[in-house]
Amino acid sequence: MKKTLKIFLLLGFLFAGLKLSAQSQEDMRLNEFLVLNTNDFEDDFGHKSGWIELFNSSYGTVNIGGCYLTNDPNNLTKYVIPKGDVLTKISPRQHILFWADNKPFRGTFHLNFELMDSKEILFIASDGHTIIDRVNISHDLLDSNVSYGRTFDGVGDKIGKEGWQVMERTSPSTNNEGVDRIPPGVLIKKVDPYGVIMAFTAMSVVFLALILLYVVFKNIGKYNIRKNRQRSEVAAAASGKPQVANVSAEIYAAIATALHVYSQDNESHDIENTILTISKVTKNYSPWSSKIYTLRETPHKK
């Protein structure tokens, strides 16, 4: 029985692992592509050709080794991205560029098709049939050296074209919006030069957060008080003594202090037998200054 359970658990973990891996690949996006490259980015061999940019939209590293890129919906496994290449591990929020030059012998990132005669680009999961992302190529919109990409990296429909545009300039292996992006601080100062909107919005959020806390703990407090009252009523009914309502923390503190003092042996008396005074005391002898208490006793010889 235990053995069967172990096997099931093992299979469960295996399945979960596969599922997690698939989920990571799901975060990859086709991000930008250039069909006709005559005067744009060059590959490591000094050649200009079309390219496809992928973007890891997640906040974890994704290994795309074993996934597929294709330009043919009827042949989803046209180009397999080689496994075992460390460069196929894409860091969070990073890009990777594939050259559509139909020269796969040049390395991992050189595809076995070109984009000139393609109608569509598809990115396929490592299972060989799950389409993770796809985009149509509108040749009529695209001139040479003009790319088509997502306005904001990874943002837009997963399967479709919403959020895509003809790019003002190509941005291979870098953020699509980064070039023209105005820092939020600059933008905020432009729309809110006196900080009034910021102050109002931010104070509203601060108040909202603390009002929520107030409401929650107000009710928890009420519930707690009600419960305590019920408990004390039950206890009072059982003991037959009158109950004390609404006891403040100060009274509890006083009782606790008295109990603590009482628990100390040397403080267990209520009536003090000494007087505290700032007047000079003529009594010269005090057990506190007695030498007998400060000297070691001589060992007894037997």
Binding site: A202, L213, Y214, K218
Partner: peptide
């Protein structure tokens, strides 16, 4: 014990945004 005091903590944060406005 007195959660309404939370709101005073919120109000005092106005110092942050007041200084923010003056700095702008």
């Amino acid at each position: 014990s007195n959660p309404k005091l939370l709101l005073i903590g919120a109000a005092a944060q106005f110092g942050i945004f007041g200084a923010y406005a003056i700095a702008l």
